[in-house]
Design a protein around this nucleic acid. Structure first.
Length: 509
RNA sequence: GGGCCGCUAGCUCAUCAGGUAGAGCAUCUCCCUUUUAAGGAGAGGGUGGCUGGUUCGAGUCCAGCGCGGCCUACCA
């Protein structure tokens, strides 16, 4: 790759000087040399008159007027006979074929074009529109320009890239697969729709720190980094909750953030170390208000991106039109096991869990065991959108105690297709109670639960200044997108999913 | 983390039971003035993921490591 670091004037000499240049690249450097320095291969700009979509839409008028169009894109194939050349030129939206003809371009020029342009090159073609006898929309080329010469070949066109290369070299996946481009454009449209939804409801979009001196707002292990000038440890945020609530304290009454969060944990087809989380908070709201907001958001997206509010997801047909089902955490558990778990002691709950196959770990409190039971017995069956309400207290140190039921908090989770899509509570706003909850977490931490939440003194101070009643909600955006594009793999909705380095130390490469 | 499968040309994949490798696309040369997975004739291209072992001989068998995929357990 030394050839790219310090390009000499003559590509031919360059290839000769670097004997380890791959022959396929050397061949292209040779062509660049033959094109000569008077042909600019990397010009500064190009005036496009039409995209491929626009050419298709406006074909009739453009053809009738014999208008000369300027169309830029990437060469995806070369076909032709000895005196003609057909080249599909692809832009972001699709592809239009360019037709080079010896009679139009002259013997010498045609020959150079035929020989020296490559699949993968970016070019701009100028000419008039017509249909070939097989009916394909085509630009009859009167002139053309190099926009960028490629020196590395594109992958082959018949077979899909391997799954690994699709993720690892997304630029090739995007270049070769229209569906892939469409999928990521849809993600962008979903994000825009989310912002529209909140903006229409007078929520303010804000940005809070990624680098935090103390991590909080969720139960997870963080990534750690170091600030040199301050000589201090900083953490990449695992959530933005505690900062958004500080804004509520400050008097910003409705805020939301679409935040990249980072969690230092395992990765699989539903977990990437960095992921996108939507969080929103509204003063004077409780979790019932948040449930309405959440249901509205999800239905809105399903209507917009599905078929009449229904989504095909794998084998499931998900229906977001009817009011979402609502069940309570303890009620669903009681129904599943045939007993009221509220009345049971910790030891009894542990015994029951063990009998159901839950793996008990030291330091697991009663509520943690209940949570495990719930994940195992209930969650997989929550296919149609379902709100699970009123969780045990210990699992939710930032949620307000339930106004009617002792030992529970006002919280809901939204499940769809068996996974958790959103999490919300009536936010705890009593500073003394919040401090006690943090102390409980500290006890858990000392008992061996390394995911227990840390006490955030500054956050408590903020709350001591007075935080109004507040409803909050968090939603995993990547999972939401997965639902809306019908994929089970988070990599399909992340442009650059985390991958181990190909040439990891120890591979001997 | 555990189990199973994979890693061979730039790309996608073959090579049934150990005898130093093939195809298609891409590349190069030649023919072909509406082709479209264009076609025809020819050519080049490989430290078979890495390290070690068994064997007269290893892409092939064994071990370790790396990377990937599927299943499984957990954090969104």
């Amino acid at each position: 790759m030394s050839i790219l670091n310090n390009p000499p004037q003559d590509p031919r000499q360059e290839a000769a000087n670097a004997p380890d240049v791959h022959p396929l690249i050397a061949a292209r450097l040779e062509k660049m040399a033959e094109l000569g320095s008077e042909v600019p291969l990397y010009p500064y700009a190009y005036r496009r008159t039409h995209t491929s979509d626009e050419l298709k839409e406006q074909e009739e008028a453009l053809a009738a007027a014999a208008a000369v169009v300027c169309f830029p894109g990437r060469i995806m194939a070369k076909r032709g006979t000895g005196k003609t050349l057909f080249i599909p030129v692809q832009d972001e939206w699709g592809s239009v074929q360019a037709y080079f003809r010896k009679d139009d371009l002259g013997e010498e020029r045609f020959r150079r074009i035929q020989k020296l342009i490559d699949i993968g090159d970016w070019i701009g073609v100028e000419g008039t529109l017509f249909r070939t006898r097989t009916g394909e929309l085509t630009i009859k080329v009167s002139d053309f320009t190099f926009l960028a010469k490629a020196i590395r070949p594109l992958p082959e066109k018949y077979h899909d890239l391997s799954l690994e290369n699709k993720s690892r070299r997304r630029y090739l996946d995007l270049a070769m697969n229209q569906e892939s481009r469409e999928r990521f454009k849809r993600r962008s449209a979903i994000l825009r729709a989310i912002r529209d939804y909140f903006d229409e409801r007078d929520f303010l979009e804000v940005e809070t720190p990624v680098l935090q001196p103390l991590y909080g707002g969720a139960t997870a292990r963080p990534f750690t980094t170091h600030h040199n000038a301050l000589d201090m440890t900083l953490y990449l945020r695992i959530a933005d909750e505690l900062y958004l609530k500080r804004l509520i304290v400050g008097g910003l009454e409705r805020v939301y953030e679409i935040a990249k969060d980072f969690r230092n944990e395992g990765m699989d087809r539903t977990h990437n170390p960095e992921f996108t989380m939507l969080e929103c908070y509204a003063a004077y709201w409780d979790y019932h208000d948040m449930m309405e907001l959440t249901e509205g958001l999800v239905r809105n997206l399903a209507v917009r991106f599905g078929q009449e509010g229904r989504l095909k997801y794998g084998d499931h047909e998900l229906d977001f039109n009817a009011p979402f089902r609502r069940i309570t955490f303890m009620g669903a558990l009681a129904e599943a096991v045939g007993r009221d778990l509220m009345a049971m002691t910790t030891a009894e709950v542990a015994e029951l869990a063990k009998a159901k196959g839950v793996e008990l770990k030291p330091g697991m409190g009663r509520d943690k065991i209940l949570d495990e039971l719930f994940s195992m017995l209930i969650e997989p069956d929550l296919i149609q959108p379902t709100f699970v309400m009123d969780h045990p207290r210990e699992l939710s140190p930032l949620a307000k105690a339930h106004r009617e039921h002792e030992g529970l908090v006002e919280r809901f989770e939204l499940f769809v297709a068996g996974f958790e899509l959103a999490n919300s509570f009536s936010e705890l706003n009593d500073p003394r109670e919040q401090r006690r909850r943090f102390m409980d977490q500290k006890a858990l931490l000392e008992a061996g639960d390394d995911e227990a939440q840390r006490l955030d003194e500054d956050f408590l101070q903020a709350m001591e200044h007075g935080m109004p009643p507040t409803g909050g909600m968090g939603m995993g955006v990547d999972r939401l997108v997965m639902l809306l594009v019908d994929t089970v793999n988070i990599r399909d909705v992340l442009l650059f999913p985390h991958m181990r380095p190909e040439d990891a130390p120890g591979s001997g490469a």
